[in-house]
Amino acid sequence: MSRRKFWTPLYATLRRNLPSKHPYFPASSVFKFPSPTYSFSPPSPSSSPSSPFPSSYDFYSLQNLKFPVRSFCFSTGSEEQSSARCWSCGAVAIAAPFLVCETCRSVQPVDHSVDYFHIFGLEKKYDIEVQNLEGKYKDWQKKLHPDLVHSKSERERGYAAEQSARVIDAYHTLSKPLLRAIYILRLEGVDVDEEETLTDPELLSEILEIREAVEEAADPLALNEIKSQMNEELNHWSNSFATAFRCRKFEEAVNSIRRMTYYERVTEEIVKKL
């Protein structure tokens, strides 16, 4: 059982108490965000490991994966989008996702019902063209990055910081197969417990074997060999995940993620040693 279940992420308790700019700005100025989707109520008991204030900063840190379950009460359909209005000029949103106003170019508050795939204009599926992400990522940053709204209002600078950080996380999450797998599964309401104790004896002994091989590897050549082996495994299990997910066999999908997580960790260890 995971002890991690017990703690609420620190930022969650503090998220909105944190002045985003300077300590001497009154905290109330940060509280003013009149975001329709932002909720400050405590999480329901059933969603204990998740955060009421979904910060998108930490999706690519494996051991810190937390997820805003709350945001999935919303459908990601465009019906809701079409009624959205710009906080600044009042213009009705034309394009979806509505991160920036097309009329006055103001950065909009974060809408957590917009998922990462949506941000990148992608269909919600696991197999995506990762090469195409960077261009879209840069397009968004050019509209959202806090450096570019430096001279604008405190309010908009706050939105820009949040939106930009969210796009960074979306980019990182979608471009890494393991993180993308965990993410897409959670969009389906399936939570992957990272710290779960390993029960599969086969996988357990395999992991121990690989760990030993890494420990004993004498030179970079040997390490690189294990690394490419790990890459093959990662590819294989990534494909298994894709198949399982497509058939909505979530248990199998979780199993693939478990495998990928371990091979990823070994790869990280190797890179540290190289």
Binding site: Y11, S55, Y57, D58, S61, Q63, A165, H172
Partner: peptide, 10 residues
């Protein structure tokens, strides 16, 4: 790490 950044460790 791309900035702005926020990370947490136990």
């Amino acid at each position: 790490t791309t900035m702005p950044a926020r990370r947490e460790l136990a």
